[in-house]
Every structure is written in C-alpha cells, then in structure tokens.
C-alpha cells in the first residue's frame, strides 16, 4: 500500500480537527475535534510503524498510549466543562472570557476620562 494514502488521510483529518477546534462554539464539540486530531496522529503512527517494520513496535505502542491519554483527557475535559457550566451556565467557548482585557480597558479609559 502506498504510504501516501494513510499519510494524506491523516493530514486531512488533522486539518478538519483544527477547523473544528477553531470554529466550534460548544466546548464539547471542541473536545470532539481534538479527538479527531488525536486520531489523525494515531493513524500516522500506525502507518509509519507498519512501514518501518519497527522491531519494538514503537508506533503501535504509542498509539495505545495516545488512546489512553485521550480517554483521560476527555474525562478531565468534560469535568472542567461541567464545572464551567455549573458556575457560568454556559458551555460556549467565546463566553468564557474572564481573563480577557476588554472590560478593564473600558474601565481604565473611563477612569482616565474622569481624571482628565
């Protein structure tokens, strides 16, 4: 089998995952997109493992580890999402902007106006 097929498929999956991460509004959908990206990498690992005929099978071992870590990640991610949802009543990424500077900037500007 041509190596290019799994490699290109992995690249396209990864790009779709990137798009999903950047474009989705719901945090859970973002997490799903992350899973897509992880799976793209998994595909790459498996394909290269088979291609290189690695004696240690590092690619497949790493794939298994990645799957495990992805499971842990989704668990933790969902816990965080639930916590955010409990405190803020929203699961939208662009509404969780407490670390942003926009409101403070407006406040400072107002303060300066008042001082001047």
């Amino acid at each position: 089998m041509h190596l290019a097929y799994p490699a290109v498929l992995a690249v396209l999956l990864f790009s779709v995952g990137v798009y999903g991460v950047l474009a989705r509004r719901n945090v859970i959908l973002v997490l799903m997109s992350v899973e897509l990206m992880l799976n793209a990498v998994n595909l790459n690992l498996v394909a290269f493992d088979v291609w290189l005929r690695d004696a240690l099978h590092a690619g497949q071992a790493l794939t298994l580890f990645t799957i495990t870590i992805a499971a842990a990640e989704i668990g933790l991610g969902l816990a965080i999402v639930l916590l955010v949802y409990r405190t803020r009543r929203t699961a939208a990424v662009d509404e969780v902007t407490a670390l942003g500077d926009r409101h403070e900037a407006a406040d400072d500007h107002a303060k300066e106006q008042a001082a001047a």
């Binding site: 990864f14 950047l22 474009a23 939208a92």
Partner: peptide, 18 residues
C-alpha cells in the same frame, strides 16, 4: 449557534495547514 464567530479564521487556518 453551533459555530463561533471565529469561523473564517478557522477555515483559513485549517485550509492552510491542510
């Protein structure tokens, strides 16, 4: 509201990376 306002940027970045 499934997609955020970041969609054009996401499309650009995704396409570029692809």
């Amino acid at each position: 509201e499934a997609d955020s306002g970041n969609r054009p940027a996401a499309l650009a970045v995704g396409a570029a990376s692809a």
